[in-house]
């Protein structure tokens, strides 16, 4: 059996890669995919802890994370589409009307 720490370290690596993508990229769609990557990394640690603790509650949480991710993707992509309609760009640097 693989020790849970390996899964948790992999989850930490994927989360950091997702965070790097969200900070690094300026294409709103790729920033969005990076956020999904972070959600998936958290799902992996939920499932790893579920096995470590012998308790299925962690797997049920993954289900709820999926529901929230689905709702988030739908609304977020709708926002990106309407930003693209008004600015013809998906660069997050172009959407800076609220910039101080």
């Amino acid at each position: 059996m693989i020790p849970s720490i390996d899964y948790l370290l992999l989850s930490a690596a994927l989360f950091s890669i997702g965070a790097a993508g969200a900070l690094l990229r300026r294409n709103a769609l790729i920033v969005f995919i990076s956020i999904e990557l972070m959600l998936n990394a958290v799902n992996l640690s939920f499932v790893a802890f579920a096995r470590q603790l012998g308790d299925m509650t962690g797997q049920v949480y993954v289900f709820f994370v999926l529901v929230v991710a689905a709702a988030e993707v739908v609304v977020g992509l709708a926002i990106i589409v309407s930003i693209y309609r008004t600015r013809a760009s998906v660069d997050v640097d172009d959407a800076d009307n609220l910039r101080g």
Binding site: R26, A28, E36, A69, A70, V73, I80, V81, D91, D93
Partner: peptide, 23 residues
Amino acid sequence: YAGAILVLFLFVIMLLNAQSGEG
């Protein structure tokens, strides 16, 4: 994820036809 959410992503990417999208 792979069946619904990612297809939605691909749909929007192809709809917007944005190449790199980064100036």
